[in-house]
């Protein structure tokens, strides 16, 4: 631990003060478009913070560039609004040197998956102790409406008047492929679900990756309506609940089973019997089944799993980095500058 971290740890002998949502809101006017899904995500985070028992001064929100990236300005915590795609890299240096801090990274589909793709996958693989909230609206909002790396193929936008030609990323599959230890999805229409997923993501030691389906009502309105609309949710969202059979529909009439080749499919619960349904296990070491679940829907127009796909333990980078330092100091004693300068062969001229 750094000196700063030590000092802070001592300060923290004082109990965490009770706070309300207001304490976590900054004095800055929120400037997203009226009706933007970002508002409800901000509200969910601000309402969750008092429940987490954490300190404002030990909380940092970091972001890159995009509509979502304005997020830190609205939190009354420490914050850094950085440059496009680089927030996971900056967060890596911060989280590794300051294990006493809660570091949140707020990003979007362009920021995280296009310009910052490299930093994202490496932060996940290294298991940096950060909580990544990816606001996925499947469009470039801040630059006024170009297609994004999560836009559906053939999407007509300002930059693709004849339709886009690209296969979109599936953020869940990508994170699982990058060896992420915590992978979850939620959506901006369900505050309770968001708060629960964020709470779990925050509690996870290591990199937590949360995709939030977020409606951009200006440039991509209704992108998730088919699954998150109040009337469709029951039949189109598949809640992943730890230890429970995976089923959905108002009566639980649909379910998910694993085929003999390891892939998964949606079935009629009554037809196969409840005991045939796949039981969800976030803690499965092998990410294979989580990956199958991430591919259950080809996009947010088909029944889509939400919740926690994966939550496993793996050593966290910063802890390991600091452990190495502590171990060397224990073995060699704290560094002595005078001795360092003489560590090669030195000679004396008199």
């Amino acid at each position: 631990m750094t000196d700063l971290a030590h000092a802070r740890a001592e300060d923290h002998a004082v109990p965490v003060p009770l706070t309300t949502r207001k304490d976590w809101s900054s004095d800055q006017e929120v400037r997203w478009c009226p009706g933007c899904g970002d508002y409800s995500i901000l509200a969910a985070v601000q309402m969750l913070m008092p429940e987490l028992g954490v300190r404002r001064e030990s909380t940092v929100f970091l972001s890159g560039i995009g509509c979502a990236a304005r997020f830190p300005y609205y939190m009354n915590t420490y914050g850094l609004h950085s440059i496009h795609g680089r927030a996971p890299a900056i967060a890596t240096g911060l989280a590794a040197t300051r294990p006493d801090l809660d570091v949140w990274v707020v990003t979007g589909d362009g920021d995280a998956l296009s310009i910052g793709g490299n930093h994202l996958i490496h932060a996940l693989r290294r298991n940096i102790n950060i909580t990544i909230l990816l606001f996925n609206n499947q469009i470039y909002g801040l630059t006024k409406g170009q297609y994004s790396p999560t836009s559906e193929v053939h999407k007509v936008t300002k930059s693709t008047p004849f339709g886009s030609l690209e296969q979109p990323f599936n953020p869940m599959s990508l994170a699982l492929g990058a060896e992420a230890t915590f992978v979850a999805r939620t959506h901006d229409m369900d505050r309770k679900h968001m708060m629960e997923v964020f709470r779990r993501a925050h509690a996870h030691q290591g990199a937590s990756f949360v995709e939030i389906y977020q409606n951009c009502n200006v440039f991509n309105d209704g992108a998730f309506e088919a699954i998150t609309g109040k009337d469709h949710r029951a039949d189109m969202l598949i809640p992943l609940v730890q230890g429970e059979p995976i089923r959905f529909g108002a009566e639980g009439q649909h379910g998910v089973v694993m085929r003999t080749d390891g892939t998964v499919e949606i079935v009629d619960t009554a037809a196969v019997g409840e005991s045939a349904l796949l039981v969800h296990d976030e803690h499965r070491d092998n990410p294979g089944l989580a990956f199958q679940l991430s591919h259950l829907a080809a996009g947010p127009t088909q029944p889509t799993p939400i919740g926690i796909f994966r939550d496993v333990d793996r050593p966290e980078y910063g802890t390991e980095m600091n452990r190495q330092v502590d171990q060397v100091i224990e073995r060699r004693g704290a560094g002595d500058l005078r001795a360092l300068l003489r560590s090669g062969s030195s000679w004396t001229v008199s």
Partner: peptide, 12 residues
């Protein structure tokens, strides 16, 4: 970060 009362947001 870490000092209560000095929370602030900076950026590019």
């Amino acid at each position: 970060p870490g000092v209560a009362g000095l929370e602030h947001r900076i950026g590019g």
